[in-house]
Design a protein around this nucleic acid. Sequence first.
DNA 1: TTATATACATTGACAGGTGAGGTATAGTTA
DNA 2: TAACTATACCTCACCTGTCAATGTATATAA
Lengths: 111, 111
Amino acid sequence: MLVISDVIRGFTDSIILAQLSKGDSYGYEINKTIQAITDGEFELKEATLYTAFRRLEADGCIISYWGNENTGARRRYYTITEEGRAVFKENLTDWNRAKEMINDLLNKEGL
Amino acid sequence: MLVISDVIRGFTDSIILAQLSKGDSYGYEINKTIQAITDGEFELKEATLYTAFRRLEADGCIISYWGNENTGARRRYYTITEEGRAVFKENLTDWNRAKEMINDLLNKEGL
DNA sequence: TTATATACATTGACAGGTGAGGTATAGTTA
DNA sequence: TAACTATACCTCACCTGTCAATGTATATAA
């Protein structure tokens, strides 16, 4: 009932911003990094990933540009904006608060 | 962008099961308990709460019965089932795993 | 030449949260 | 006594995010 993707839901944007805050990257690489960090336990579905990029760009959190690879598949790179950094910072705070709340709600005795 | 409700999404069921695992209760009381535990920082919206009850009962995680109050508003009580306890136990495990994953994804350096 | 890896993108179905609205009882306050 | 607040339940329509399925294109390895 509680699937891992439901838990992650709502963090997609934050996870992407977290990766981009370390430097420019592109979809495929970001997803590989996520898999590496979670020991292959988690990956963003492609549809989810690219939907998130559109959303983040529309919200002014990231900017995209095409890489100039002269071989292999083309890559669309993303840069995090100042706005994006601010949002990410806020998300981190929210996460830490939410984490405590959920811990309490799942474990603490009532009242 | 990261709203608390997005973070909580997917935890509604677990939070309710957590409260019911301590004993029978009814909607209004469960919500008050949640508010108390989170120092008023969080509450389930009524629509969310009652939708979750329907879902949990349909899934066999809880059973409901009407209380026999002879004064005040009527109350529909809920009992967690064995199935519900099993699901809750699994949810706790999933949460702990997801928590670590999200922490890593938001904080760890890439690779 | 067939398969795999890299790399991007869209669409339609589905699920969960929630604002807005509704019902009913009981106590408190103006 | 009228108005307000608290208790307590319920449903519908809408919105948002996830994801399976599908499609495109390049390059390398078997």
